[in-house]
């Protein structure tokens, strides 16, 4: 028996919004410790890694580890039927071929359940090596989303250059070029608005704007985002999900011909 309950369906809706642009379907691995999802997009350029810890749920029970392959478009249709403040419970029997979502309104006057067929997804698990990153940038997630959206209008590739002074995002295309420089702030009063950089050595890497835009769909999950970069390894874009876990996106760089 598997059962996981969250008092606010809004969180699950935001999690799904954060993954469904990159993935059509995904396996949710459920165990004692929580729910994990790891999948690459179809083109194998980006990878989504989601962890929802069992202690972050209002109720969590997982008698036997199980993998639930879900079509994310179908899951999205179901979650649209929940109000943001509904309690959501995800249920499955051991070895089941369906999963059930139960939505309960705050006053319990409305209870709905939606059963969805599970899929057999033959997804391989990837070992992600631990990396000591040359640069780790922390900034407001809204600011990152804004920069990516603004710059993507002018080109397909963004060059991210990080030094100890700050981080520069640059794009060039048919129209011309655009640069956004963010200096490191020492804004201790408003930590949420600060830009901080931990740098071992400067890094310059190019990435496809289209993927970064997809990653920023996670913005509603967290006020902060962390970008980790080292030369010639994938970028890691991480959003913490308060008291529940995190979503990390890995993006392979673009390399000059």
């Amino acid at each position: 028996m598997f059962e996981a309950r969250l008092t606010s369906a809004a969180t699950l809706k935001k999690v799904l919004e954060a993954v469904k642009e990159l993935l059509n379907e995904a396996s949710f691995d459920c165990s004692d410790s929580g729910i994990q999802l790891q999948a690459m997009d179809n083109s194998h350029v980006s990878l989504v890694s989601l962890t929802l810890r069992s202690d972050g749920f209002d109720k969590y029970r997982c008698d036997r580890s199980l993998t639930m392959g879900m079509n994310l478009a179908s899951m999205s249709k179901i979650l649209k039927c929940a109000n943001n403040d509904d309690t959501v419970t995800i249920k499955a029997q051991d070895d089941a071929d369906t999963v059930t979502f139960v939505f309960e309104s705050k006053k319990q006057e409305k209870i709905s359940d939606y059963e969805m067929k599970l899929m057999n997804l033959d997804q391989e698990h990837l070992g992600i090596p631990e990396t000591d990153f040359s640069c780790v940038i922390r900034m407001p997630s809204v600011e990152f989303a804004r920069i990516v959206r603004d710059l993507a209008q002018f080109g397909e590739t963004v060059l991210i250059c990080c030094t100890k002074e700050g981080v520069k995002f640059s794009v060039s295309g048919d129209v011309g070029s655009a640069n956004v420089k963010l200096a490191q702030t020492n804004n201790f009063d408003k930590e949420e608005e600060s830009v901080s950089i931990e740098m071992q050595e400067p890094v310059s890497l190019s990435f496809a704007c289209q993927y970064l835009i997809s990653f920023t769909k996670a913005t509603p999950l967290s006020p902060r985002v962390q970008l980790s970069m080292s030369s010639n390894v994938p970028l890691v874009v991480e959003y913490e999900i308060a008291e529940l876990g995190y979503i990390r996106y890995y993006l392979a760089p673009k390399i000059e011909d």
Partner: peptide, 14 residues
């Protein structure tokens, strides 16, 4: 122009 690299080379299948 820059070429998009795939992730496969960076991670190993476990």
């Amino acid at each position: 122009t820059a070429t998009q690299v795939r992730l496969d080379g960076f991670f190993t299948v476990v």
